[in-house]
Design a protein around this nucleic acid. Sequence first.
DNA 1: CGCCGAATTGAAGCCAATCAAAGGGAGTGG
DNA 2: CCACTCCCTTTGATTGGCTTCAATTCGGCG
Lengths: 232, 232
Amino acid sequence: MLQDGRVEPASGLPHTWLPARAALCDLTLSRITSIGRVDHVAAGAPLYDEGDASEFVYGVVAGMVRTVSIGRDGKRVVRGFYLSGELLGMERARLHASSAEAISDTRVVRCSRSRFDALAASDVQVASELWSWLLRTTQRAEDLSVLGRASAAQKLAYFLIDFACRVSASRRIELPMSRTDIGDFLGLSSETVSRTFTTLRHTGLIATNGRYVTLLDPGALRRMSGNFVNGI
Amino acid sequence: MLQDGRVEPASGLPHTWLPARAALCDLTLSRITSIGRVDHVAAGAPLYDEGDASEFVYGVVAGMVRTVSIGRDGKRVVRGFYLSGELLGMERARLHASSAEAISDTRVVRCSRSRFDALAASDVQVASELWSWLLRTTQRAEDLSVLGRASAAQKLAYFLIDFACRVSASRRIELPMSRTDIGDFLGLSSETVSRTFTTLRHTGLIATNGRYVTLLDPGALRRMSGNFVNGI
DNA sequence: CGCCGAATTGAAGCCAATCAAAGGGAGTGG
DNA sequence: CCACTCCCTTTGATTGGCTTCAATTCGGCG
């Protein structure tokens, strides 16, 4: 089931547990850094708002960003979390369909769309990286749509495993976002997220300490999450 | 909210009701037809199976195709429906992550991946069309992941509106797939799909006649579905 | 120390899944 | 042409999981 580009985890864990996701956009990010501007965004502050003209592409250098949209019924939806090394703001629409907010203090590099397009057009390696990124994004979105019919425990297990793979190959991960953020991302109430954390703790699958979570049994979590073909 | 490439419906309906989705891959499909082979697939027969080597790209010329994958827990998931004019089998993985089956008698054109890649590399217009297609696919997948937290009525409303936009701009659409197919696509049981159809019929939003559904109030359905930014 | 927002825990209600059974519709064979 | 069967659809009754409302606890910060 392993796909190309998958690398062994740095910590020496069996790859069936926590395969480290290869940093997606390393090359692109370094190129953007040289032609863009690095900004600091305070925790809670927006990078852009829903409805703003989408003029820039952003790369997360350090910290974490969430994208949020508000449904017509007022329901908040967290579209995604972006960790350091990941890109956002690449949608083709002229207006941003969601707002982007720093979760913790964050450094981002921003690059105008025109420069970005020129880069993608002139650099074959960058274009290839972007193509892979888009395919992965599609597959992750499909994962999430399948995950929509899973139980709360399955959703949270997926979330934890996915996060552990992206942020590091370590079993100990930091979750700077709130329970509400996680719930709005997974389609659960914050209470259910909290309850499910408690259940996972009681069954010995995780340990929690403040905003840190330790995956005590990544294999079980992974199995619980449904062993997606694509992601993870 | 209208995006580029959106066209007015042929039937003269206000575009706020049923905007016809521009055929996505017309050019690509015609090019493929000239370099590929057209096959006939009987209703129920597979184009390919989950786990098969992915050697071909397919375009639906007539009829309809569904892609299906079976979760580790044995749960059936319909990943998507492909109408005439749409492409499938483009994923980059060496193995198909889902099987593809003809729902009704279907004609497809198949084209080897190498020929397809060569076409995409040599024809700028095709490459552009494919890029748009991939972006749309991503956005539809995101729509579906958001739809996962909606009610049964909202899901079905989305399904009907989306289908009406894709198959024609008419209010009368044919649904050749079973209730179970729809349920496995939306994350509902076939019974709930059936019940929800009944509810929509009783509230005067649709009329049904065999496998034909008439959207009596597309505006209400569209509002009910949540007015997604991307799709529809 | 005291405040305030977030997290946790508890209790009740609702929606969809599941189990179960009855009602069509297409195709087959007598 | 009718009877029969099979499968899909529809409808009913019950169960279970998540949401919601509500109350308490925890943790950070002035």
